[in-house]
Amino acid sequence: MAQFPPPIRNPEVKFTKLFINNEFVDSVSGKTFPTINPTNGQKICDVSEGDKADIDKAVESAKAAFKLGSPWRRMDASKRGALLYKVAQLMERDAQYLGSLETLDNGKPYMNAFGEMMFSANMLKYYAGSADKVGGKTIPVDGDYMCYTRHEPVGICGAVIPWNYPVCMFALKLAPALACGNVIIFKPAEQTPCCVAGSRTFVHEKIYDKFVAKSRELAQQRTCGDPYEMTTKNGPQVDKEQYSKILELIDAGKKEGARVECGGEAAGGDGFFIKPTVFSGVQDNMRIAKEEIFGPVQQIFKFSSLDEVIERANATHYGLGAAIFTSNIDTAMMFVQGVRAGTVWVNCYNPPCYQAPFGGFKMSGLGREMGEYNLSQYQEIKTVMIKIPQKNS
């Protein structure tokens, strides 16, 4: 913990307006909305609420920036990279403040929030180095032609940013888009916790009871409380709506016959805290098995064979991440090939890695983020064919 600077418990809120055309402005309508501290349910401040008129303004400024011959279009790729690198340095400089501000806004434990800032800075550096390395290919084609491809920016991009990792997601959308030469417009989405939380846990029948007992023990040891405390593992849910949804699903699990090993209720107090909850005896047809809870709830299923668990793991509309823990390499490789998920971890779970692509199968999103694969989403491929004159015989 020594590597983490202490949190700022009351970080100053410096900006509450919309950022359009390189300046902070009020919304056209003048509307605002309150942002709530999930730790105590109190208002932090009022933030400008953008709507269609504000998006139109942002699009017009983006069009001007992207116009052929504009300073942005003519900027050297290496200079775009240098700008991204400068943003990364500023983020590192202010990581303590930014992490503290995120903890205030969404209740994420400060250690996690500070880590997100440093991860985001490293991601920006990664794409800063990619800015002048976006190149096409020369392609041998039939006939007297030279053929090559140009990777050109798509243009104006709209990005929906979830609030679970707001700074990380901002960097994830901003960096590759600017590295490829786009201009980019952001829209926040509803607030959600970790999208790859390992809530559906399949355990072999031979070790099931032992695993459930250990999970219960570890969940009971998790500290749920003040997110600014370094020992806190679970902060509050991000808002009242999510808090109520999680409690409603917990109640559904109880009614449908799953066993509550620990937790299963609100933690009390003024904030949106829920006790870390473990369910055993979960069946595939239960709501807690089929719906995304997005909360501190673990569902433990029992299985008996590899073929069975792959089939059951795939029986969902989602497919973002999956993991297997085994000492048998054949079992691991069969699982890797069989499970329908965008990322599969073997003997680990969700290690931070911005160099590798991230995305899901089925309803867990389109395309891939992070790594080289992310760049392709912001590029159009232009094929150029040039007639080559030949010497007269």
Rank of each mutant, 00 (worst) to 15 (best):
F358D: 04
V238Q: 14
Y208S: 03
M75Y: 04
E256P: 01
D144I: 13
P351Y: 06
A121V: 10
M333C: 11
N10K: 10
Q42K: 12
R93Q: 13
V384I: 14
D270N: 12
I329W: 07
V297P: 04
D307I: 14
P140E: 13
K14M: 06
A58I: 05
T192K: 12
D251H: 06
M370I: 15
A159P: 00
E190T: 12
M117D: 04
V87R: 09
Q220M: 08
F211E: 05
R368I: 13
M169T: 09
K290H: 07
Y243V: 08
I20T: 09
A266Y: 02
K187A: 15
K254E: 01
C168G: 11
Y373S: 14
G30M: 02
G50K: 04
G158E: 04
E291A: 08
I185Y: 06
E23A: 12
K125I: 14
S70W: 04
M1I: 14
E261T: 06
G181V: 03
E229D: 07
C262Y: 10
K362L: 08
A197Q: 07
E92H: 10
K108F: 01
L306P: 04
A213D: 07
S29K: 03
D144K: 08
D132K: 00
V297M: 02
P389S: 15
C224A: 11
A258W: 02
I274S: 02
A88V: 09
E380P: 01
A266I: 03
M75A: 07
G268Y: 02
T383G: 02
K275P: 00
V160L: 10
T201G: 05
F114C: 10
I8C: 12
L366V: 15
I324V: 12
I184T: 08
S199Q: 01
S130R: 10
Q89K: 14
T326C: 04
I36P: 01
L366E: 12
C45H: 09
D56I: 13
V28S: 07
S48F: 09
Y243E: 03
G371I: 07
A266T: 07
V59H: 08
D270P: 09
D46Y: 06
V309I: 15
K31A: 15
M123Q: 11
F358S: 06
A2E: 13
I246Y: 03
K240S: 06
Y145E: 09
P188T: 13
F303W: 08
N164V: 13
P276F: 01
K79W: 13
P5D: 01
E369A: 15
Y127V: 07
I250L: 02
K43T: 11
L68G: 12
S27E: 00
F24G: 02
Y165I: 10
S61K: 07
G359F: 01
